[in-house]
Design a binder for these strands. Structure first.
Lengths: 343, 343
DNA sequence: ATAGATGCAAACCCTTTGCACATTA
DNA sequence: TAATGTGCAAAGGGTTTGCATCTAT
């Protein structure tokens, strides 16, 4: 896992030269957790006993933003705030108008809609800002928060694990059911094998989750950071239901599995990649790889099944070949048998 | 329909006194369609040959914002812009970073998620800002837009009608199917009657849609303003599918209808109410009323059915009474028959 | 008569910049 | 030594405000 200084080194642009003051400012800044105004940073620096001019602070903030170390956010009150991106993914904000505190969250569903809207207008989005203004719990009740705020980094990892676990669970349900339904003995074995794998992964993930929450007892009580509603019941839930439909044979089951694994792979890859280096990112990317492996296995199996069926009934009706994990139709291997088809 | 001056009068706060200059500024401002910076408004005023000081413009803008005539928006480039709210509902923005043009849209799905997120944090939202920055079509292709931009007001009305029509269509499908399925002759008649009503309303809405688009040939080509994805296939679509499930009797059908009508009523009411006075708002609110009428009819019918069944089989298993249109359990009328139940 | 609206210029706030000086490679 | 970073103070842009002067009610 990246240390703060490695993080800075990775982002330091070429051609600049080093300076103790800048390093000091960056260091102080990275140690903060929330959003700072330029002025807040000046006071921080001053309090940590260093005499650095306001202009340098501004220039360093700009430097950090350009380097990708910091993000500039605008809460609409006429001054900019800055947040660092070290183990801190891009996100949206809830902003309390009365105490100016802010809370962070991320919603994959909102991001998906944003994509849709932009597409509909043929607009190429580069960055989206969503701010919910209002009154926070404390300002309303007057009571202090019952749970102290933990660093976002941990909550993020927790939520990433939760999403992965939900997906794994629904995957397990899917393969268990599919293996029960399967008629073809070879297909049955594949589903059983996948179910076993899911069970194992699930155990690993749950252990990791336990480890994380044991180390930080307050962690489970923290409010959510990731709002991945469409994924929160597991990306295979729909597939499980589809299995229940009458007339679903081995081939259909494979196809559904392929679709779910592809969707799942894409989901975890997409989010993993857009996150900053962090445990959450690692969880997403590792999981994406696993899903890709399952995907590949299922596709191989699908091809084999089609080949066997074609051998039995050479004139059977043609079958669409599953597309690759990234959506394009995969060039068919030498397995042969499947015929190109419409629909 | 409200005229601009009525609109202003409705918003004018008590206790102020009238002034020709302010009136003039407001008038000029309301005649604009996009977003103006304070300075743009100053130039506009100057070009319309009036010598009004910058300070007065700023003060009037503030006055309008407080009165609800204008909204202040922040595109993140260090200056505020203002948009009026006359026939112009709150919305989100797509902002082109290269030409600074902005495009407006509204998504009920995003707003629903925002609610969820705020709830999860026990945060009381008062206002949400969503801005998608990026590059617009023209700036990318270099070509001028093929369709000239029409006033938002018309696009809004068009989209409101589209949502209403989709709902009406799905409602028609629902009642047609339900009437075919119904066993009880009285239930059948009710469903038939509702299907007939839907057909009639649908015709009215479609005529209105045609009228609107005939008057403005470019209207249909305008990009969408309302992104009501979850509603765009009609709020009864799920209900139609549920009817197809095995074992759905008259009572279940009524129940599904009640649920759909309630959801539909709420949806149209909620949005209708939050829109500024406009044709779109009227469409939403009128439609909400219709849905409420259907809801009431179905509930009466449900009670009657339960009563009849109870008379036949006095010891039948108990049945939940449908809740009122606003979600709370309705106080039962004198119809009697239905027994309080769990579940 | 008096609260409220207007004009002018100055003040404000946050941020950027010009220029002389210091530092790093 | 040549390019880059720093400090200071001044400028910048957008917005607000104090105060004297009008003007509606």
């Amino acid at each position: 896992m990246l240390s703060p200084s490695q993080f800075i080194e990775n982002h330091r642009p070429a051609g600049g030269r080093r300076s103790g003051k800048r390093d000091f400012i960056v260091d102080v800044f990275l140690r903060q957790s929330g959003h700072l105004g330029a002025d807040d940073l000046v006071s921080l620096i001053r309090s940590e006993d260093a005499r650095i001019s306001r202009a340098t602070i501004y220039r360093t903030l700009q430097w950090m933003v350009e380097a990708g170390i910091a993000r500039r956010v605008d809460f609409g009150d006429g001054k900019y705030r800055f947040e660092h991106s070290y183990r801190h993914p891009r996100h949206f904000h809830l902003i309390c108008k009365s105490c100016q505190q802010s809370f962070e969250f991320l919603s994959s569903d909102i991001e998906a809609i944003i994509e849709d809207v932009a597409n509909a207008r043929r607009f190429t989005p580069s960055e989206s800002v969503l701010q919910i203004y209002g009154t926070c719990e404390q300002c309303q009740t007057g009571l202090p928060s019952s749970v102290p705020r933990l660093p976002l980094e941990k909550v993020f990892a927790r939520d990433a694990l939760r999403v992965a676990i939900a997906t794994e669970r629904s995957g397990l349900a899917f393969y268990t059911r599919a293996s029960r339904l399967a008629r073809d003995p070879r297909g049955k074995r594949v589903f059983e094998r996948l179910a076993a794998e899911e069970r194992e992964h699930l155990a690993t993930l749950e252990a990791r989750y336990k480890e994380l929450t044991d180390a930080e007892p307050q962690l489970e009580a923290q409010p959510a950071f990731l709002f991945f509603k469409s994924a929160s019941n597991g990306l295979f839930s729909a597939g499980v239901e589809e299995l229940a439909a009458p007339g679903v044979g081995d081939r259909e089951a494979l196809r559904i599995g392929i679709r779910c694994e592809r969707a799942s792979h894409r989901f975890f890859k997409q989010y993993g990649e857009r996150f900053e280096e962090s445990e959450g990112r690692r969880i997403f990317l590792e999981f994406a790889d696993e899903e890709r492996d399952h995907f590949d296995l299922l596709v191989r199996e699908f091809r084999a099944l089609v080949a066997r069926q074609a051998a039995k009934r050479p004139r059977s009706r043609s079958v669409a070949s599953p597309r690759g994990v990234d959506g394009a139709a995969k060039p068919r291997g030498k397995t042969g048998g499947a015929r190109k088809s419409s629909r």
